[in-house]
């Protein structure tokens, strides 16, 4: 199972490395959004610390949806998805592989956007590196856990336009709010019970949608 999972992850990463169709666009969009947002942050330091978390997660979400959307759209070209499902692996493994590739994509995005936000705004988002890492990691998994099955769903729809973004955004809003609040509290140096409650919320959300995605993915790919 692990070896097969790795091969499927490798297939997607190799495909992306050769074609460079998604990640550069995602990273560029993230950088553009971050620059535009930070230009608007002409506020006193307290105000900047208050809104930096929300703007950071908005930038991650806007750019990240691009990667989520492409993760299954690629498989709908030239019947690649059918070939993928002919692999001697369960659909759950396919789902987990796609999920992990999306997690890698968003992790790369976060690794660029967080330092960029710090450089452009001066907000100390890395004042507590482990706390930031925890929130970024959980938020990343939560977004991908919801976004991956919805991307598979949208890929089944012809002439779908930006449907996956329309499906993903409403469900992601709670995670976005919780992760933004947790990041704001890090920037304000307030790692107390309130911060921990937001972190738990994001973790619970990620867990719920990881389980549901694993269970429901079979229904999305059966044909």
């Amino acid at each position: 199972m692990t070896a097969k999972l790795w091969w499927m992850i490798r297939k997607d990463l190799l495909s992306e490395y050769r074609s460079r169709r998604t990640w550069p666009a995602m990273l560029l969009l993230g950088i553009l959004v971050a620059v535009v947002f930070t230009v608007q942050m002409d506020l006193p330091p307290e105000g900047q610390r208050r809104i930096a978390g929300g703007l950071l997660w908005l930038a991650i979400l806007f750019a990240g949806v691009l990667a989520l959307d492409r993760s299954f759209a690629l498989e709908s070209e030239d019947h690649c998805g059918e070939g993928l499902l002919l692999y001697p692996v369960s659909p759950t493994a396919v789902y987990l592989a796609k999920l992990l590739v999306n997690v890698f994509a968003l992790a790369a995005l976060e690794m660029i956007l967080i330092p960029l936000f710090i450089a452009l705004s001066g907000v100390p988002l890395l004042a507590h590196p482990w706390a930031t890492l925890l929130v970024a990691g959980l938020g990343n998994v939560a977004i991908c856990a919801i976004g991956t099955p919805l991307s598979a769903l949208a890929a089944k729809i012809p002439e779908r336009g930006n449907l996956s973004a329309l499906l993903v955004f409403p469900l992601i809003i709670p995670v976005l709010l919780a992760a933004s609040e947790a990041t704001r509290l890090i920037a304000e140096d307030r790692l107390g019970a309130e911060w921990w409650r937001w972190v738990q919320f994001v973790a619970a959300f990620a867990l719920v949608f990881l389980v549901s995605g694993t269970v429901l993915f079979d229904f999305l790919v059966e044909d």
Partner: peptide, 29 residues
């Protein structure tokens, strides 16, 4: 979103299946 998905598909069982997955995902909210 659910109604948009339904409106985008013609084949009844595919429409029902995708809409069902979205409905269950949504209800977890």
């Amino acid at each position: 979103g659910y109604l948009l998905v339904r409106g985008s598909l013609e084949e009844p069982h595919l429409r029902a299946r995708l809409a069902a997955v979205l409905a269950i995902t949504g209800v977890l909210d």
